[in-house]
Nucleic acid binder design. Structure first.
Lengths: 226, 226
DNA sequence: CATATTCGAGAGCAGTGCTCTTGACTCCTC
DNA sequence: GAGGAGTCAAGAGCACTGCTCTCGAATATG
């Protein structure tokens, strides 16, 4: 931990900070290592001492975005302190939506179009799993038995077998399937809003409550035993 | 409609065809007008006679993608010929998913990250509305009364007021809200699958039936009056 | 036939990611 | 303290991009 390593850490943080700023202005496609170097008062080749490629910088920003989103969702859940499952689901979903609208380009980085030819490294898996694992924790706190009439078929249950084996062995497969659907809905609804697909259809001022009631309706599938 | 105009049309079609091919290979960020010109045996400046900018070409490809997706969904629905609402919803959802997996880069173009600074022109609105309008048509064929206990609040209903006014004046607002949620789920689930977010979680071979049963579960909210 | 329009080619500008070499500077070891 | 090892920024340069401009040639229209 010499003064050298600390200086290096500072430079890396500065590059990431400027990268995030550029992301907010021109988005991921417009992120330029040369522009970052200019803002930093360095020449472009110097930045390559810290990030071997533009993709490597993007990977770092992706991991940071996943972590920031996960931390935000976890904080929103933690405030409730052993709250009801429905309230927790609403809090998490709203936190994801709010974060996405506040950081649209970082959200696009993680849930938007993948960079062609770019394979997400292993390092992203854990940060990417924070919100899903949080939702899984809520699912496991639900003590409702979903009626047989709504149960998923064995073939459909096979789809989530790896997920169940690794993270939720005791969880009812139908519960997990519907919980996963809720997560996919959240991603879809937030993506469509953040990406401008609701421009002429959904009243902006009412989007927040609209989204919350949609989540409530879908979550009811998990919580009602009728 | 002289021979000149026809030749122009042919060249435009060729540029778009090569653009689509490049899209499939290197994705939207890698789409290069110069490369298209090379494949076409022309010099890059000549292509600008047909598309004033790279963004204009992308817009044309976006419109084509929307139209292709919409046409595919409409065809899948038309086969059923006055089918049950549930079967129609399943057919449309599956058609969207299948099309997206067959054309991942074109799907990413329309439902992935928006190009920063790129404002979708009016021309894209109609093609983009084809699938939603198709779903709306199914919703209007449902003669189930959603119980008061599941009704959306007036504030939430206000969100879809513009949509209802322009396209479905007589439709129950709660029905429309839940139908919109179904559409958002479809986009979310298909996006996550097409963008590789199910890599280590959902068994590939069972994804199709898993998705179908998820759609069935959510659509049940629209079709059950209990 | 003459004119007007369209078209492709070529050069050129400013920007990009990335590589390689060079010189300076710092740190550790003897 | 002197010398070698490692680190860093700079600069030049390559191949690529989108885009603009000008200039001839071909074509269609009056």
């Amino acid at each position: 931990m010499g003064v050298r390593a600390e200086s290096r850490e500072r430079t890396i943080a500065a590059v990431k900070r400027l990268g995030r700023a550029q992301l907010a202005e021109v988005g991921a496609p417009g992120l330029s290592l040369r522009a970052i170097a200019r803002d930093l008062g360095m020449v472009s080749s110097a930045v390559y001492r810290y990030f071997p490629s533009r993709d490597a910088l993007l990977t770092a920003l992706i991991i940071d975005a996943y972590d920031d989103l996960g931390q935000t969702a976890e904080a929103a859940d933690r405030i409730l302190d052993r709250g009801e499952p429905m309230r927790r689901l609403l809090a998490i979903a709203s936190a994801v939506r709010t974060w996405a609208l506040a950081h649209p380009n970082e959200y696009a980085l993680i849930f938007g179009s993948p960079v062609p030819g770019y394979q997400a490294p292993q390092d992203t898996i854990a940060p990417a799993s924070r919100v899903p694992l949080l939702l899984l924790d809520v699912l496991q706190s639900i003590d409702v038995r979903i009626p047989q009439s709504r149960a998923f078929s064995p073939q459909a249950q096979a789809a989530i077998a790896p997920l169940r084996r690794d993270f939720a062995p005791g969880l009812d497969p139908t519960m997990l399937s519907l919980g996963y659907a809720l997560w996919e809905f959240i991603v879809g609804a937030v993506s469509m809003e953040a990406f401008g697909h609701q421009r002429n259809t959904i009243e902006p001022s009412a989007r927040e409550v609209f989204f919350a009631e949609q989540v409530r309706s879908l979550a009811a599938l998990l919580l009602q035993a009728d």
